[in-house]
């Protein structure tokens, strides 16, 4: 099989990799929901949730470093929450005079900001572990098990199957563009026309990509037809959910519920 650089799955042998995808899927969503429901500034609960997700990262063999490196991705978005430090009224922390404006930071505002950033950081780590420890077909199975419509799951599957093919196609188009475009190494000499022109030419590439996708989908349709496709999405029955699976699922949910209650009782 063609291993593509985009696929986040890391094939390892670990208890987390071996866990049924349905359990992982439900627990990941439950973890993110728990983080979301935990009141602001409930720091002990945040620390315990972090301990849980770090433990899972170690257990999965992915390593903390790998997950944390990928988790940086969501950081820039924290900028959107930065202003709350100054807009929420409360106990004054410090004030920042910029020009004729004076921004006053409050303790409550800072607490809100750190809470949001921390929750986001916890959630993305859980999502990364799920994607890195579960193969996509298993994820599709999990989605089917939790009741996502078959047509949609079928679409996800088809999209995934041709994702790498079309990404390669897009990269080829870009490489061809680079190969055929002049480029001057001389400083101050720009190449490639105006921004609007470049954008329109990129549009041409996108159109070309779509056209190839159309033509490919025709071929795929014919190939599917020749193998008995009749418009119905058929799937194998789901593997049985053993009692051991139920126990692990329940244990995870109980742990998360306890953490949530702990947070709500003391900081809610």
């Amino acid at each position: 099989m063609h291993i593509h650089f985009l696929d986040p799955y890391r094939p390892l042998t670990s208890p987390i990799h071996a866990l049924d995808a349905r359990i992982k899927f439900v627990l990941t969503v439950a973890f993110i929901l728990t983080a979301s429901l935990t009141p602001n500034a409930a720091w002990p609960v945040y620390i315990l949730l972090l301990a849980v997700v770090l433990s899972v990262e170690i257990l999965s063999g992915l390593g903390i470093g790998y997950v944390l490196k990928r988790a940086v991705l969501a950081l820039p978005f924290a900028l959107a929450a930065l202003p709350v430090i100054f807009t929420i009224k409360g106990q004054m922390l410090f004030s920042l005079p910029i020009g004729s404006w004076i921004f006053t930071a409050s303790v409550e505002g800072l607490e809100r900001f750190v809470s949001v950033a921390f929750k986001s950081w916890l959630s993305i780590q859980a999502a990364i572990v799920l994607a890195a420890s579960t193969q996509f077909p298993e994820l599709l199975q999990a989605m089917r098990a939790v009741g996502i419509p078959r047509l949609l799951v079928g679409m996800f599957g088809l999209m995934w199957r041709y994702l790498f093919v079309l990404v390669d196609e897009a990269l080829r188009l870009m490489r061809a563009r680079t190969a055929r475009s002049g480029h001057s190494g001389e400083a101050g000499k720009r190449s490639g026309g105006s921004v609007a022109w470049r954008a329109r030419m990129t549009g041409g590439l996108a159109g070309n990509l779509f056209l190839r996708a159309f033509e490919r989908s025709d071929r795929i349709y014919v190939a599917m037809l020749s193998r008995g496709y009749d418009g119905e999405v058929r799937t194998l029955p789901l593997p049985p959910f053993t009692s051991l699976n139920w126990v692990s699922l329940a244990a995870g949910l109980v742990l998360l519920t306890l953490l949530l209650l702990f947070g709500i009782f003391f900081w809610g």
């Binding site: 047509l151 079928g154 679409m155 599957g157 088809l158 999209m159 995934w160 199957r161 041709y162 994702l163 093919v165 079309l166 990404v167 196609e169 897009a170 996108a206 990509l209 779509f210 190839r212 996708a213 159309f214 490919r216 989908s217 795929i220 349709y221 599917m224 418009g231 999405v233």
Partner: peptide, 14 residues
């Protein structure tokens, strides 16, 4: 169905 799946992949790649 295949058209939508492949176009979704094309939008992602695009």
């Amino acid at each position: 169905m295949p058209l939508m799946g492949v176009l979704a992949a094309a939008i992602f790649a695009g």
